[in-house]
Design a protein around this nucleic acid. Structure first.
Lengths: 420, 420
DNA sequence: CGTGGTTTGTTGGTGGAGCGAACAAAAGAG
DNA sequence: CTCTTTTGTTCGCTCCACCAACAAACCACG
């Protein structure tokens, strides 16, 4: 039994994490911090919180929490629900819920096989969505954004009519993005280079005033995954630590440490697709040799299985189930490649969990055991803490969910601007 | 020209980073935060700060800063120095310095070729040290700790006589450690397993009352390196982002993101030595095949150069300089291996800098160009942001410095307990 | 049905912490 | 010697969480 030690300072715990913060703290910062803390607890709670339970959970006094909650209610971020029928002595508390449908985050996505818009409210429940499937490889940015904007305008109009406040927009793109500036530097499968996504989106009158962000699809999917997992486990999102690998045409990756995405000096973290699997391996489009993508990317996988280009994963799996030896070998070798690439990452980052998403979730039954075997062999810490390989649980269009959640999350982390 | 975007929230900046903090903020937290902020600025400043300049730098008012500084002075954490002779109108400010020699952090180190004690004060200047070189491979933990403790007691006694306050102790160990519990899980070159370092050190009466920590040598060296680099560049330590690789008998690694060590679910991050370089490569002691250590570890390097075991790096370099072909090839292949392993890490973490330390710093002239070439070829973002490969600048016994700095850093981050 | 016990939410008063304005102190400029 | 400029400090203000006390709403039980 190994005790799990978090990265907390073991000797002198921080109250306000000074990490990275170079800003001074004033009285108002205090309010902002505690407002966010209370709201976070309300949003993340599995079972609805009351003021008294919040006070216990966050460590503030009941009067302080009451004041904070009142402000959140006034801002329409939180609502009181009907008193619960308790079977216990004492005055029953008033259950507090993240206000349904009043504040929404809008996620947009451009992918090779679909575009879509998804709106989530503070509680993470779906408000509206519009998804169009199709083939968008090598598509012209302006026309694809035009279609996306028309979907988006529909969604936003519907939200406006229900008097919801749109807190912002986040666009998921399969490529390297520059989140601050809103540039899509390079999206190989869309064949985009240096597209200023935010500038295009700002042309829509509905989006002109909103905060807009751009993010990498795998990063955003990992965000959705982190939330889904912490919900499912009932634990804190701070305990989420995993390497996320999403197999699509390209291979996306993301690192979740302490519930948040790690890396990203320029916002391009998680590029595991071009990790070295074998330096003497096949030439890759990136210029190097033996990249993971050449073994475990969708196209490579189908090619190595001896199947015609464009074969779906479903069909590939059917061939494996039917006993097609070359298909089985291709999947096996893909699993080995994923295992090799992620073992280095796990060693380097001291992680113990790999979450397989995208088409890898679909292939999990055949892929997972191979990956697990390689990791158990190659991860040093596996002797003390067993490696876990798990399938993603965040559902369809996870990046789209993640994009919307990115916006919602910002409201929860910084409620003050929305207090009016 | 690519604009460097930090991981800051681009839309709504945080004052108090809520990241990871689940604790509520009270009035006292505010004080703690700002005290630390002011102290950090005094310690990190290249040129001494005055109260007025501090106020400008941290964003607090002059009265607030004055109050905070007075408390730091009363606690003997900061001293006023002689007024500077200014050539400018206005009352000259009083320069403030981290109090020299009043608070010290003590670093201890057990390595395969030396043990040592180093004491640094708040300003990072050396107060005392005792280093003993020798061969400590496969040494018995108790006897080696006994020798280390006798050195440590000497140093602590000397510090006591100069009325310095020892703020704590941190032990650097070449292996997997469990920082919270103080266990050394596994140190292959010392042939240690599950040694409770803190328990042993607590036997010394001088250390009984002090906070004691255990850390990995590469992690601590990276910490020293981060500080040294931010000092040298004159910038903030928050801008330090690099992958640190230290070549010794084993190969240690560490990831510095935003000036802090990343990873470490269990405190074992940075294990790059067993990254896959070639899955069909030689068998490694860890059980896997083709690990980086089999190409670029000190022993492997010497063996591949066809030199007798125990040959020093200096001698190896001499052979290379003398035109020994097999030595040159071994170094070349080691560089390629380091390049391959770190390219995956750089892609995954979106970093652009590799810092080579330990014996790699010594070999930098012959190793660096090879590593750089491989990285330029394999790092995707290198098209936009050139990869940098640099030699470590943190001096001899960097882990020892890092261990002492770990303690000092804790005082700077949490000055409140030392206010009396 | 009334009384006591228990939990919840609210109301004042208190103290800590930073802010703003004004002021004293210490230089250089003319 | 006076004026300007910059520094550091003093004093009253405001903000925010705390503490103690209290009102409210429920259960249990005689």
């Amino acid at each position: 039994m190994v005790t799990t030690v978090r990265r907390e300072d073991p000797i002198q715990p921080t109250l306000l994490r000074t990490r990275g913060s170079v800003r001074p703290a004033r009285q108002s910062s205090l309010r902002e911090h505690n407002l966010s803390l209370v709201l976070r607890h309300i949003v993340d709670a599995g079972t609805p919180m009351t003021r008294a339970r919040l006070a216990k959970a966050v460590g503030l006094t009941r009067p302080a929490v009451s004041d904070l909650v009142d402000r959140l209610i006034a801002a329409r971020l939180v609502v009181e629900s009907a008193p619960e029928a308790v079977e216990r002595a004492g005055r029953p508390g008033v259950p507090l819920l993240p206000a349904p449908g009043s504040f929404v985050g809008v996620g947009l996505e451009v992918a090779v096989d679909h575009i879509g818009v998804r709106a989530l409210d503070l509680g993470g429940t779906l408000v509206t969505e519009r998804i169009v499937e199709g083939d968008f490889r090598a598509s012209e940015p302006n026309s694809i954004f035009e279609r996306l904007l028309s979907l988006c305008d529909l969604v936003v109009a519907q939200l406006d009519s229900s008097s919801a406040t749109v807190a912002g927009v986040c666009v998921s793109v399969p490529g390297l993005t520059n989140p601050g500036g809103g540039m899509v530097r390079y999206a190989p499968n869309l064949v985009w280079q240096d597209v200023d996504a935010i500038a295009v989106l700002r042309r829509s009158p509905k989006l002109r005033e909103l905060p807009i962000e751009v993010g990498n699809d795998a990063d955003l999917a990992a965000r959705a995954e982190a939330r889904q997992r912490s919900r499912a486990s009932g634990g804190s999102r701070l305990d989420q630590n995993f390497l996320f690998i999403s197999g699509e045409v390209g291979i996306g990756g993301a690192i979740v440490l302490g519930g948040e995405l790690a890396g990203g000096l320029h916002g391009w973290s998680g590029e595991i697709g071009h990790a070295v699997v074998d330096p003497r391996g096949p030439q890759c489009g990136c210029g190097a040799t033996g990249c993971l993508e050449q073994y475990a990317g969708k196209d490579a996988l189908v090619r190595r299985a001896g199947l015609p280009p464009g074969t779906t994963i479903t069909n590939l799996l059917a061939r494996v189930a039917a006993g097609d030896e070359s298909a089985r070998t291709a999947v096996e070798e893909a699993g080995q490649a994923v295992g090799l690439a992620s073992s280095s990452a796990l060693n380097l980052l001291d992680l113990d969990t790999v979450v397989l998403g995208g088409s890898y979730a679909q292939m999990f039954d055949v892929l997972g055991p191979t990956v697990h075997a390689i990791l158990t062999e190659r991860v040093l810490a596996a002797r003390w803490v067993p490696v876990r390989v798990e399938s993603a649980v965040s559902g369809d269009f996870a990046s789209l969910t993640g994009a919307a959640m990115r916006v919602v999350d910002r409201v929860v982390t910084h409620p003050t601007p929305w207090l009016g």
